[in-house]
Amino acid sequence: MAIPARSRPSTPRPAKPRCRYPTAPPRSSPPLWDGSALERRPLPLGEAVEALTYDLLTATHDGWEDGDGAFGVLVLDVSGRAVRLEYNERYTASDYYEHDF
C-alpha cells in the first residue's frame, strides 16, 4: 500500500546574501620593535584571525592570560560584517580582613 506524499504549499525561500571574498591574503601591520614604523606583510587567514583574537582580548580584558583558565569564542559574522567576542574569566578570589582596635 503506497502512502500518498503530502503536498506542501511552495513558499519561496529568501535569497541568501552574497559576500565577496577578498582575492588577496589579509595583510598585517604590526609595529616595528622600535616603534618607528609599521611592517606591512601578507598574513595567512588563520594567523590573521588569531592576531585579531589576541588584539581584541588585550583591548577588552587586559591580563586575560593570567588567572585560572579563561575561555571563550570569537564569532565572525561575515554576512553581517560583525565580530563578537564571548569571554569567560575564571579566577580565585580570597578576601582577608583583620582589624585591631
Rank of each mutant, 00 (worst) to 15 (best):
residue 44 P to G: 11
residue 98 E to D: 09
residue 89 E to I: 04
residue 18 R to Y: 08
residue 87 Y to D: 02
residue 42 P to A: 01
residue 58 T to V: 08
residue 39 E to F: 14
residue 68 D to G: 06
residue 29 S to M: 08
residue 51 A to L: 03
residue 83 V to A: 07
residue 101 F to T: 06
residue 13 R to K: 15
residue 81 R to D: 05
residue 50 E to L: 10
residue 11 T to P: 06
residue 24 A to I: 08
residue 4 P to E: 11
residue 93 A to H: 12
residue 17 P to N: 04
residue 55 D to P: 04
residue 86 E to A: 13
residue 24 A to W: 06
residue 68 D to K: 05
residue 52 L to Q: 01
residue 78 V to R: 07
residue 48 A to E: 00
residue 84 R to Y: 14
residue 48 A to L: 00
residue 99 H to C: 10
residue 59 A to P: 00
residue 6 R to H: 08
residue 78 V to I: 14
residue 38 L to D: 07
residue 33 W to T: 11
residue 64 W to S: 00
residue 92 T to R: 15
residue 84 R to P: 00
residue 99 H to Q: 14
residue 33 W to Q: 12
residue 45 L to F: 07
residue 26 P to W: 04
residue 46 G to D: 06
residue 14 P to K: 07
residue 21 Y to W: 12
residue 20 R to M: 11
residue 4 P to G: 03
residue 5 A to W: 07
residue 78 V to N: 04
residue 69 G to R: 03
residue 12 P to A: 15
residue 19 C to Y: 15
residue 97 Y to V: 13
residue 85 L to M: 03
residue 13 R to D: 11
residue 27 R to G: 10
residue 29 S to K: 11
residue 10 S to K: 12
residue 16 K to W: 09
residue 56 L to I: 15
residue 13 R to T: 14
residue 25 P to Q: 09
residue 43 L to Q: 04
residue 48 A to P: 02
residue 61 H to P: 02
residue 13 R to W: 08
residue 30 P to F: 15
residue 19 C to F: 13
residue 46 G to I: 02
residue 101 F to I: 07
residue 48 A to F: 01
residue 17 P to Y: 09
residue 17 P to D: 05
residue 65 E to P: 02
residue 93 A to D: 08
residue 62 D to M: 09
